[in-house]
Design a protein around this nucleic acid. Structure first.
Length: 477
RNA sequence: GUGAGCGUAGCUCAGCGGCAGAGCAUCGGACUGUGGCUCCGAGGGUCGGGGGUUCAAAUCCCCUCGCUCACCCCA
């Protein structure tokens, strides 16, 4: 008896179906086009890495590393390891969950962590830094400008605009220079992409969070100020006062907002070098005519950020309103064992971009998807060979063609073609085989022409552009 | 991990103690070489799952699972 169990996606992941997938493909192609026009080149990275890479770069205390990573051990490696432990006369029950009250979960983790631990990437900057070091990319001439695209994984509770498998496109600039023009051009690149997506309702927020010279003193100052008003803070914020005072700025508790506004701003406590860098960044944005808001409360969550941080938010989204975010991470490569290297990058959330593009309504799956150019209706077994020849010819000419496998009734075939969105139906039956001309019917106005096989392709192509009809009609903004 | 809302056909939902429903979609027919319209018909259900109350439960009660949104945090 067949098992009637229905399989479904696991929590927080989803299918992306046609026609939506057309919009995704369009967005990815557009992003690639923009990034490559700034001379960025794609780096294809693995989906999983050693757990240690993310722990060290993203930061042990971050939510991402402490509770959101999909970490696993190769089962065969673990089996091997257990056997080797047994070979040393150790008690196997000591490593069996629940078999012994003295074996705690953390002890089991300690045991497992002696063996290679792997993690589905929660972000990709760490991988880029690893690849930069591993491949000796510091010997390449000039700046190393890379971009990546693909899925990331974080085990968070899903909500609007947040998924456990989500898609990011990111760009990174690595090398010996930390000139603010690099930061500004990276941001400019993002604004160009926003324009190409015909998005208007976005805001650029920028800030500087200092560097290891000036930030520790500021964090201490902030902590002292927060302690003075601790009893007015909620539980979450009270905890952060001790663990990570900067995070208090992220609070959305309404009662805390007034308090937060009056806290000392990090940009008032930067060292001279950081202050200069931030001032120059703003000048660089001005000379590019990029509107921005200085948001002193913008502190990014990942440990490796320093100096420049920025974020693009959209009013079209729900609570998860960040479309893209990034910042400078000058110490990261060296911390991972590479040469002293400056770095800056951003990641944008594809899921969120797609949502905003759809909400804006300027670009849609139907306007960027590939249309079905021709539906071939054939009648009678003797016409099928001619139909297959025609289909091959049209497809070879770059057209999208549907050829029914079974002989259809004419009325039903035309009905199906119309519902599939075909631009034309090409009718091949006894009459057409005799005369050698095909009836080509245009659905838009119902007009029909008789054409020789050799003329069909050019007729289909010239009578209407193949793709992006709707986009071409939309005035440039 | 916490809170709230919601689970009935592929989709959107009605029904809220008494035979499991509608619209849309799908398939077939009217209609044998000309689509859209119209009409007729068909298929499709563990009413999320389990337990309880009752002569009788989609409906009332309890538990559980799932989804959505929000918190936390982030793209």
């Amino acid at each position: 008896m067949p098992d009637k169990r229905k399989f479904h996606t696991v929590r927080g992941v989803r299918d992306i179906l046609p026609p939506d997938s057309s919009l995704w493909n369009w967005f990815e192609a557009t992003a690639r086009d923009v990034l490559e026009s700034f001379n960025f080149r794609e780096i294809r990275l693995p989906i999983f890495e050693e757990t240690e890479l993310f722990a060290r770069s993203v930061g042990l205390e971050t939510d991402i590393v402490s509770k959101e990573m999909y970490t696993f051990h190769d089962p065969l490696d673990v089996e091997q390891a257990i056997k080797s432990v047994l070979g040393h006369g150790l008690d196997p029950t000591k490593v069996h969950l629940g078999s012994d009250a003295s074996t705690s979960t953390s002890q089991i983790w300690d045991f497992l962590n002696k063996f290679e631990s792997l993690t589905l990437r929660p972000e990709a900057t760490a991988s880029v830094a690893r690849a930069y070091i591993e491949n000796g990319m510091h010997t390449q001439p000039g700046l190393v400008k890379l971009y990546y695209a693909g899925p990331m994984f974080r085990r968070e509770r899903p909500q609007k605009g947040r998924y456990r498998q989500f898609y990011q496109i990111g760009a990174e600039v690595l090398g010996t220079s930390d000139h603010p023009a690099i930061d500004a051009e990276l941001i400019e690149m993002l604004t160009v992409l926003l324009e190409r997506c015909k998005l208007g309702n976005w805001t650029l927020l920028v800030n500087s969070i200092g560097d290891p010279n000036c930030r520790p003193a500021y964090v201490e100052l902030l902590r002292e100020e927060l302690r003075k008003v601790k009893d007015q803070l909620g539980q979450d914020s009270q905890r952060r006062v001790e663990t990570n005072p900067l995070r208090v700025f992220d609070s959305k508790v309404p009662e805390e907002q007034a308090l937060i506004t009056n806290l000392p701003k990090i940009t008032d406590h930067l060292c001279d070098a950081c202050r200069q860098h931030f001032d120059d960044l703003r000048r660089q944005l001005d000379l590019r005519s990029i509107p921005y808001t200085h948001e002193p409360r913008l502190v990014r969550g990942l440990d490796y950020y320093m100096r420049t941080t920025f974020e693009i938010t959209s009013t079209h989204l729900g609570a998860q309103n960040a479309l893209a975010g990034g910042g400078r991470y000058d110490g990261l490569v060296e911390m991972l064992g590479g040469p002293p290297t400056k770095g800056i990058g951003f990641a944008l959330g594809e899921d969120r971009f797609i949502e905003v593009i759809q909400a804006a309504g300027q670009i849609s799956a139907s306007s960027v998807g590939r249309p079905l150019d021709a539906f071939i209706v054939w009648m009678g077994a003797e016409s099928y060979p001619a139909a297959t020849r025609l289909a091959r010819r049209l497809r070879g000419d770059g057209l999208c063609v549907e050829l029914p496998a079974e002989e259809p009734k004419l009325r039903k075939a035309l009905s199906l073609a119309e519902r599939l969105g075909a631009r034309f139906a090409i009718i091949i039956g006894e009459n057409e085989i005799k005369t050698g001309v095909f009836a080509v019917k245009r659905f838009a106005d119902g007009k029909q022409e008789n054409l020789a096989e050799a003329d069909v392709a050019s007729f289909l192509r010239t009578s209407a552009p193949v793709a992006n009809e709707a986009e071409a009609k939309t005035p440039q903004t």
